[in-house]
Amino acid sequence: METKIYINESNYQNSSYNPLKQEETPRKLLWVDISHFSELWQFFICSLVVFLFFIPYGYLQEAIFAIKGFKPFGWYLTLVQFFSYSIFGLIESQFNKTKRRIPIILYLLLGLILLGSMGFSNASLGYLNYPTQVIFKCCKLIPVMIGGIIIQKKVYKLIDVLAASSMCIGLILFTLADNKVSPHFNLLGVILISLALFCDALIGNFQEKMMKKHNASNAEIVLYSYFIGFLYLLLILLVNGEFREGTEFCIQNPETYFYIFLFSLSGFFGVQAVLALIRTCGALVAVTVTTCRKAVTIIISFLLFSKPFTFQYVWAGVLIVLGIYLNVLGKTNFSNLKQIPVKVGKLFEKSRKRRKSPIIV
């Protein structure tokens, strides 16, 4: 499970949108103004902070499920995480004096979809290896394409079909490898993570539309959507008894609450870093950095946590990376691609000029 960050891919397809030229409000990273740095250094700093917070995020998530007896409490983890995000969002809203702009009725729907996305994702870790879960989360294109074909009667380009096919084959191979080498593999985990992916496909479009129409801040979205999701889940867990069972388990194992707090805190800060990266360099660069981060997380998972390994994981991973690459390539305007070396050169030129002091004769 990952903290949800929704990137408007149309931004970098639209030639009128150029994040490298926008100088709107001061660019901030974790509420610290980084505008005085060159754009090249802003990219390096934001990327470093993304890795700094999201790599511990992935480690802590797997460490929580490695606690003996915790696997049945994925929904309870989601409850505590939603509560933590609500508190963090409240603090940020008070600090920035944010006012609600989106009607509460829309938040009731957004909170429900968000609950399905993150709840199913957390619950799936009770049945799947962490790398398998992350691999599935990399393949959001598949449910998006299926929904587009069924609901909007869309016709996709050949490169999109190839990307989805590559991802599908990679997912099948990765799942078969997991089934072969993992003694705890359960098909229910695949069903749960698939449900999370379909919720992801819904929530991305829904949240983007809300933010555009009402010009809502990130702090508002985080506060209201996570708090309403928390209320939904609290009611469900009180009815089925998992709230009491989860609370008793965590009280008996108090380190669990400590891990969940760090897990939620690192995820919240990681969100802020990715948003700063989007503002600085645009969505395409942000997608590339976050995808690289997921690859590093999978490698660290195999290195730090004892789990069976087979080279079929590698071949399956290569196919999925190929699918991601084709997906990004298909959404990139090739006329804009020719400008990338020019833009990068300008960033280096700006950085060089800033280092030079004026010569006084």
Rank of each mutant, 00 (worst) to 15 (best):
L176W: 03
S182P: 06
I55H: 13
L77D: 03
L197G: 05
A283I: 07
F263G: 01
K294A: 12
L60Q: 06
I159G: 10
C292I: 13
H214F: 15
T297R: 04
R27E: 10
C250T: 05
N253M: 07
I150D: 10
N186P: 07
F311Q: 09
N218M: 07
G116P: 02
I151D: 09
N205R: 15
P341I: 09
F309R: 04
S182T: 08
V289N: 04
L234F: 06
A177D: 07
Q133Y: 02
D160M: 12
Y259I: 04
T288L: 12
I228L: 08
M167H: 14
F120E: 08
M210L: 15
L29K: 03
C168N: 09
F95Y: 14
K21H: 11
G126P: 00
V318R: 07
F37P: 08
P308M: 03
L329H: 14
I236Y: 02
R101C: 03
F305V: 02
S16D: 15
S166T: 12
K338R: 11
L192M: 13
P131E: 00
C292E: 13
V344N: 11
K71L: 08
Q133S: 00
Q22E: 13
V344L: 14
E255K: 14
R244D: 00
F73E: 01
S225H: 09
A201N: 10
E39W: 06
F243L: 00
V285C: 02
I359C: 10
R100E: 03
K346A: 09
A177M: 06
E245Y: 04
L106C: 05
L234Q: 00
F174P: 09
F258W: 12
F305M: 05
F65M: 01
E220M: 02
Q152R: 13
G116M: 08
M1W: 04
G204S: 13
Q272G: 01
D200V: 11
L319K: 11
N129P: 02
D178Q: 06
L48Y: 15
I135W: 02
T332S: 15
N186W: 02
V161A: 14
P358N: 03
E62W: 03
A123I: 07
N253W: 06
E62N: 03
R293T: 11
L173H: 08
N253A: 07
L108F: 02
I146V: 11
L231W: 02
V49F: 15
Y325N: 10
V296W: 05
C46T: 15
Q152F: 13
D33S: 03
I251D: 12
P254S: 04
N18T: 08
I324L: 12
L235A: 01
Y156F: 14
Q339C: 07
I87A: 00
Y127H: 11
S47N: 14
T3W: 04
R27A: 09
P19Q: 04
S306C: 09
Q13E: 14
L141D: 09
P143V: 03
S93A: 13
F54Q: 15
I172V: 15
